[in-house]
Design a protein around this nucleic acid. Sequence first.
DNA 1: GATGAATGAGGGTTCATTCAT
DNA 2: GATGAATGAACCCTCATTCAT
Lengths: 177, 177, 177, 177
Amino acid sequence: MELIAEQGYSATTVDDIAARAGVAKGTVYYNFQSKTVLFEELLRHGIGLLTAEFRAAVAGLPPREALAALVRAELEYIRRYRAFAQLLLSEMWRTNREWQQTLRLLRGEAIEVIAETVRAGVASGDLPADLDVRTASSALFGVGLVVAVDWLVFQPERPLEDVEDALLSIVRRVAEV
Amino acid sequence: MELIAEQGYSATTVDDIAARAGVAKGTVYYNFQSKTVLFEELLRHGIGLLTAEFRAAVAGLPPREALAALVRAELEYIRRYRAFAQLLLSEMWRTNREWQQTLRLLRGEAIEVIAETVRAGVASGDLPADLDVRTASSALFGVGLVVAVDWLVFQPERPLEDVEDALLSIVRRVAEV
Amino acid sequence: MELIAEQGYSATTVDDIAARAGVAKGTVYYNFQSKTVLFEELLRHGIGLLTAEFRAAVAGLPPREALAALVRAELEYIRRYRAFAQLLLSEMWRTNREWQQTLRLLRGEAIEVIAETVRAGVASGDLPADLDVRTASSALFGVGLVVAVDWLVFQPERPLEDVEDALLSIVRRVAEV
Amino acid sequence: MELIAEQGYSATTVDDIAARAGVAKGTVYYNFQSKTVLFEELLRHGIGLLTAEFRAAVAGLPPREALAALVRAELEYIRRYRAFAQLLLSEMWRTNREWQQTLRLLRGEAIEVIAETVRAGVASGDLPADLDVRTASSALFGVGLVVAVDWLVFQPERPLEDVEDALLSIVRRVAEV
DNA sequence: GATGAATGAGGGTTCATTCAT
DNA sequence: GATGAATGAACCCTCATTCAT
């Protein structure tokens, strides 16, 4: 995960992976069908973690607070797994890739947590009735990713709290009934 | 441009490029120092086009209208050069790439147009005084990219006008003094 | 070794080497870092052999006999590894080559055996006191090489013993106190 | 000549040659059938020069003095065209080269001048009667080349006069009736 | 369960040569 | 007489994958 997240998929060789894992190259193939499958499982692991944190963040909170909690959870995740976040940003909107299917599925699972929150908010009247659930959810996910990574890459001296404030204030305005 | 934008840098071979261009492989190397340089010139060309359209869009407009015009110009550009936009989204926030230097420079030129507009708006009082110019400009650029590409990739049936409306309304709210 | 010695470094492709060795091309690269490194190891092997035979030839002999033994050892070596000797003659005095460093080192080791003999002879008074050790050693090495190879290439019908006699008589005259 | 002598045949591209000559690449092919032919003419020119100097050196001298003059002429030539001499040393005893035929011919012409001197000396009784003309001539030529170049490459700090003295004294002893 | 030597398809790059202008 | 854009064969090298042990 460290290697591929830092260097990218193509730049990371199976030799590298085996060496970092402290096993022989054959062992990688003993445990994974192919490099592609290994990468898919990496994506599964990484996005699964994010989805789990999304779930933990919203647990028991009312819609508007849950929304804020999701933003915080995403930023926190990106801060902790910065390289993986960059990887996601690179791969998420690409087409013609072998693992595209898998990635869409995983993206769907993560966004579904956001969607549930939005859906509940719309139903309870806490969020605007004309808010398109699917659109709002995926936009929130994507915007959080790009804004946070942009900050990390191009303005690393700034504290991530600033991003959080900016994003939360925007979300709040958009979420106003 | 079509090939690399569609398949990505590594997946596109120089053979592919030569074949698509209808020339021999040697001809590619007669015109470009290396595959990397070719890609850099591709980036230069593509982002140069965007920068030019940014400049054309804001010409003579007052700050708030210029901001809206920039959003429209970016979306229009992404609609027209969809594959290139995906490429940008994939490469813009990666590190450890040979063309990173070039990309950062070009990104800076494009964002500078946005920054000039924001700066003028803050100076004239049309935009909030506490708006951080650098941050706001790069965020606007990034958000437009990810939201539009997300739409194109995951909800292609929706008209791009919806994205435009959504983005413009957000920008307007954030830009309120 | 046969291939490179016969055709030269550039004219011998890695494909050739793999084919002659009866392995796949990748196998060559699994065992050698690069074609250059392979060639360096070839030089190391070949010159190492010569150095070893030099050492064996002089073992226990008094200076003047040792000198004659060295000439005989060199000629015998050239006869046995004719192609390699030609290779040495071609590469030894070239500059601007990647393996130059390696070659100089190996040359130094081989010549050092000769030098030890000459030095001992000068010290014991068996050889002229004004003989420059370094010069005499490298000249002896080079002359043996060029005279023997010249004979092999341009007058192959002549027995090598003639060269031996000629060289030994010259060495003896020069070595006279 | 400068380029090929310094970098070697393979390392010098036709582009290099054209650039150094200040003409277009096509012009090189307008004047020379191929790179090989160009190299052959280079050899012809370079060795022709040496042959001419040999002829000039021996003109009118008695055999033993002519022999000494030849040694001096060869060394002087090597000093002046050092890179070309290294090139000769590299190519002269190689086999399986395209220009081998040409090179042998040219070598023959140069050595013939030496041979004429030796032959005359043997006939007149100035040189030992049992001296093999062909062998002696080619050996003198080769030894001069390798000893002088060795000196230039491995002991460049020493004056070439030392080599001259050493070679002349050897030649004199060998030439003693 | 684990290994690592071996593979070979495929990639980027070079460069002598050609030929229309 | 001269040019230089275009060529394509050939080269060195990489690396995901296999398989006998």
